[in-house]
Amino acid sequence: MLTSKQRAFLRSMANGTDAIFQVGKNGVTPELRDAVHNALEARELVKISVLDNNLLGAAEAAEMLASRTGAEIVQVIGNKFVLFRRSKTKPVIDLPAAKK
């Protein structure tokens, strides 16, 4: 579970990046899930765009992909959303410490 400070940190990191995946008219397919899973393992933070011809909104697509990949939703704005998941092999992003 991300704290608001960690979420803000991740939002600032994602601000300058482009979307690397698009959810098209087929929705969240197993191929897209696998590609996002691999990208999360390598990058830990991915931005995804939802095309206008999709029946799902960005929030629904974010929920589906987050639950299927074990990621957390960082942000949903318009037709884009950002997912984060800590890498199991080599962590890339150093999050601010959570207060206890």
Rank of each mutant, 00 (worst) to 15 (best):
M1Y: 09
K80A: 08
A8W: 06
V50E: 02
A58Q: 07
A35N: 09
F9A: 12
F84Y: 12
A97T: 07
R85L: 00
L2K: 07
R11L: 10
R85M: 00
L2W: 08
N54R: 08
L83Y: 01
L32E: 04
T3D: 11
D18L: 06
A8V: 10
L10Q: 13
R33E: 12
F21A: 03
I93T: 08
E44P: 04
L56S: 12
H37Y: 03
A97I: 07
A62C: 12
L40T: 05
K99T: 10
L10P: 05
R68Y: 13
G24R: 03
S87V: 03
Q22K: 06
I73Q: 15
I73Y: 15
P96Y: 05
A42E: 10
E41Y: 00
A97V: 11
R7N: 12
E63N: 13
D34K: 05
D18P: 00
R43A: 04
E72D: 13
L40G: 00
A71M: 14
L45N: 03
G16M: 03
V50A: 04
F84S: 02
E44M: 03
L32Y: 02
L83N: 03
I20W: 01
N26R: 05
I73R: 15
V36G: 02
G16Y: 00
L95N: 08
K25E: 09
T89D: 01
S12R: 14
S87Q: 04
K100Y: 02
K25I: 09
V46C: 08
E60G: 12
L45E: 05
R33K: 08
V28Y: 01
R11K: 15
R33V: 15
K99G: 09
L83I: 00
A39W: 00
V50P: 00
P91A: 08
T29V: 00
